[in-house]
Amino acid sequence: MSQDLLVTPLHALHIEMGAKMVPFAGYDMPVQYALGVRKEHIHCRESAGLFDVSHMGQLRLHGENAAKALEALVPVDIIDLPEGKQRYAFFTNENGGILDDLMVTNFGDHLFVVVNAACKEQDIAHIQAHLPADVTLEIIDDRALLALQGPKAAEVLARLNPAVSDMLFMDATKLDLLGAECYVSRSGYTGEDGYEISVPSSQAEELARTLLAYGEVEWIGLGARDSLRLECGLCLYGHDIDTTTTPVEASLLWGISKSRRADGERAGGFPGAELILNQIETKDVARKRVGLIGQSKAPVREGSKLFDADDNEIGIVTSGTFGPTKEAPVAMAYVKTEFATIGTEIFAEVRGKKLPMTVEKMPFVPQRYYRG
């Protein structure tokens, strides 16, 4: 392991459990365990998987105007976010590009924000540069972050605190788990029901070991995390979205609150608003993010060029793998808008061969969030 890599509070436990470790976003992280990526993926879909996502950035925003300050940086309604609720958001730049995506929770006395590991430092600087004097940003460095995902996640976590059973998708609360004050949200990055749990670093290993002692639970590494999120049509920052893609190109209109659109009561007011709102109104974008299903068995990886039937280059794959649940190659890509219609056949270049793929609606596998 490189001397320069950071480690999570659960690093020693991963080593003990036989994880294969790889560098990821500046951390030494588990990519897979003894089960292997495919079996870990299927286990999470069928039972419950435990993920260490402590490399993510955890922040608190304090102050009466915290919601107003954050809302000025995202095309999302933060001011009216109810207490005990979480919302997906993304930072935009003046050109309408996406700086990062994030999760925001209103805990009443503060906003709790989780940002991507690779963007952590730039996000902190971006927020700090735009905060008014009466709002403070607190960087949380004494907490780990665990995700318990899968159809049996609720049953398992309820053994430690039955209150989790009453939570709905995107609910968030402070709960006692094994004597630790945890921030628990019913959310995740797999498309399955499940929870994300912010736990004090000193108590993270005890919580992880307790959960792993249940027969339903297995450690899941970054490899299966990637195939799970891709099957469920969830973007990976730096791959499927970045500073060169707008939310409209990225098919993320659902992530832009109605109140922030052209006819909303708090329309605009975020970086790149004029460009983004114009794209929404005119639908005038040259390319769109789409889902692709392969017609052969060969996986189509990130970076593969895409062509039409006349051999004209029309786009590029931004994420791709073989979907263990879909039992077919799945990919996300950007294609020229005229090729973004569901059912369109296009061709991916893989090792000099053109493999047929079909534009398909995402998610490829039904999302099973618990909405009551």
Rank of each mutant, 00 (worst) to 15 (best):
E138D: 14
G108N: 09
N95M: 08
P82I: 05
H62A: 09
V76I: 08
A129F: 01
V104Y: 07
G97M: 06
V74I: 10
P75H: 03
H126M: 11
N106V: 04
L137N: 01
H130A: 15
V156L: 09
H130G: 08
D142K: 09
V76Q: 13
G150C: 12
I140F: 02
V156Q: 12
L131S: 09
L70G: 01
A133H: 10
L157D: 01
A69T: 04
I127A: 10
D77V: 02
A117R: 06
E64Y: 05
D142G: 08
L111Y: 13
A144S: 14
V135K: 08
L61V: 06
H126F: 15
N95W: 05
I139G: 04
I127M: 02
D80F: 05
L145T: 07
I127Y: 00
T136W: 03
N95I: 03
P132K: 11
I124T: 01
N65G: 11
A133R: 09
Q149T: 09
A89K: 07
I124K: 00
Q86F: 02
L157V: 05
E155R: 04
F91S: 10
N95E: 15
K152D: 11
N93L: 04
Q128S: 15
F90P: 04
E138V: 07
L111R: 01
H62V: 09
K120D: 15
E83H: 06
V113L: 14
H126I: 05
